[in-house]
Design a protein around this nucleic acid. Structure first.
Length: 470
RNA sequence: GGCGAGUUGGCGGAGUGGUUACGCAGCGGAUUGCAAAUCCGUGUACAGGAGUUCGAUUCUCCUACUCGCCUCCA
């Protein structure tokens, strides 16, 4: 199947042709590890997870190399350490564990390589030395700066010129810079900051050099795809390109950028109070696959708006689909879905196809649907929409005690209906509805078993209602 | 100020130079103690203007608006 990808570098969709026939390589910028990943962090992870899955499907799992770094040296981490009094390594180790747990809950596969920046300081220093030797960088006052004017194509990826940017004048002016646009490759560290010995004294790397150095070490001088959020296009990726090209590397062939996430139509930010982490959602009882489904429902190059309504619709679809799929595992991935994904990751179109397969109801279509869902990172065999799952990341925060209580109420209600005592039955139903339990929706079938509609209930109120029935 | 993306029916969201997805909601019907769930039916929307064309929602230009990045937050 021909895979087409939109390349930021050329601003058009191109047929993907790997540098090495039958093998694909990709590098995706990973998180700076100092706190829980927020929902916006999850978007590139899921976008490139889908790409990774598609490439594995096309070339075979053993023929795809996927590198995603952890930035574990950064001033934000230093600040967090200073503020909490905890050692840096403790913070970064813990955050990396969280990140992998949270992304795993969203069904993201782990990349083949997950390098930590601090393990690649020597290659960074070597690369910086090389850049200085070739006149692309200079040392000044313990800093090493990249000479932006020495790379003629600087600004090409993001479509801007150095002169335009100077006009914009939002650059840090520092006395040691020859040109205000020059960016830091290496900076000095005081004794209380992490640092490594270097030809320029004890210091630490600037942000951009790590990706150039790690991509070179792990993927070589040239590789196929480089990805990340579109906020990274400038300056991060522009700077990566400048460094790597000036070091004589061909670097990435295709550049892919996902659009940003919004929440109810607004940018997620701490000041607006709409900032939340993936873990927050999971703990509220939103299953990881629901988060994934919502993410898949918008094309990666369009802004993704996370809304309560979309969350509800995703729950509804997955619940219904699961009821039809139960244990089906024998199918093959639907070709139309592969085709949709191969066209620049058209995940919304792939979901449309899933709807069609579901609606058909044919055994073979349902088998194919199950296989396709699994391909897209949603396991149809996992009963993760079970509201009684006590693990909050896959359920709705209800306990088995709640289950027993609801079952008792439900049985009682059904008994009254069988006796044609509708007046009493309706009264119970009304009481239940008032506390958030919709008895009528309770019969949604999941895997052939009765289940409740995903509602957040109060355990105490449930108990009260049950008592009142006795 | 610079750069980029976008504007599709009530909402969400694909796509196409001519036959106009799909989901949700709504409406009508079947079913049902009522209801839920399910099933059947139902929706000619492509920001505005100009141009190219036999024909444009789809291509070009302009205008308006929205959003993002350029600044620690992906």
């Amino acid at each position: 199947m021909t895979i087409k990808l939109y390349n930021t570098k050329t601003r058009q969709k191109e047929v993907f042709k790997p540098l090495v026939d039958g093998k694909a390589s990709m590098y995706v910028c990973g998180p700076t590890v100092y706190e829980r990943a927020h929902l916006g962090n999850a978007r590139p992870v899921l976008v490139f997870d889908m790409l990774y899955r598609l490439l594995r499907h096309e070339y075979g799992a053993e023929n795809v190399q996927y590198v995603r770094n952890f930035t574990d040296v950064d001033d934000k981490i230093n600040a967090r350490a200073a503020q909490t009094g905890r050692p840096i390594s403790e913070i970064t180790d813990e955050t990396i564990g969280w990140f992998l747990d949270d992304m795993g809950a969203l069904g993201a596969l782990e990349p083949t390589d997950m390098p930590r920046a601090t393990a690649y300081i020597a290659p960074m220093i070597a690369m910086i030395e090389d850049l200085i030797a070739n006149g692309h960088a200079y040392a000044a006052e313990g800093h090493v700066l990249f000479k932006v004017r020495s790379y003629k194509d600087y600004g090409k990826l993001s479509g801007r010129s150095v002169d335009d940017m100077i006009a914009g004048a939002r650059v840090e002016v520092a006395p040691y810079k020859e040109d205000p646009m020059d960016f830091v490759l290496w900076k000095p560290s005081s004794d209380d900051l992490p640092g490594w010995d270097s030809p320029w004294g004890r210091g630490r790397p600037g942000w951009h050099i790590e990706c150039s150095a790690m991509a070179y070490k792990l993927l070589g001088a040239a590789f196929d795809i480089h990805g990340g959020g579109n906020d990274l296009t400038f300056p991060h990726h522009e700077n990566e390109i400048a460094q790597s090209k000036c070091a004589g590397h061909d670097f990435a062939n295709v550049w892919m950028h996902n659009e940003m996430l919004q929440v109810e139509g607004k940018k997620m930010s701490k000041s607006l109070g709409n900032f939340f982490t993936v873990r927050d959602l999971l703990e509220q009882g939103v299953p990881g696959e629901v988060i994934r489904f919502v993410m898949l429902s918008t094309h990666y190059r369009k802004p993704m708006d996370w809304t309560e309504k979309k969350r509800e619709e995703a729950v509804s679809h997955l619940t219904r689909w699961r009821a039809s799929l139960s244990q089906r595992t024998a199918g093959t991935i639907d070709p139309e879905i592969v085709s949709a994904l191969s066209n620049d990751l058209n995940t919304p179109l792939a979901l449309v196809r899933l709807h069609a397969l579901w609606k058909s109801g044919q055994q073979s279509d349902l088998d194919s649907m199950a296989a396709s869902l699994r391909f897209m990172g949603i396991d149809p065999a996992l009963p993760s929409v079970d509201p009684f799952d006590e693990e909050p990341q896959v359920g709705y925060g209800l306990t088995s005690g709640d289950r027993e209580t609801i079952e008792a109420i439900f049985t009682h209600w059904n008994g009254l209906k069988k006796e044609k005592n509708f007046e009493a039955a309706d009264l119970i139903r009304k009481q239940a509805t008032e506390m958030g339990l919709d008895l009528q929706k309770w019969l949604v079938s999941i895997n052939g078993e009765d289940a409740v509609n995903p509602l957040i209930l109060s355990t105490d109120k449930l108990r009260d209602l049950r008592e009142s029935l006795k």
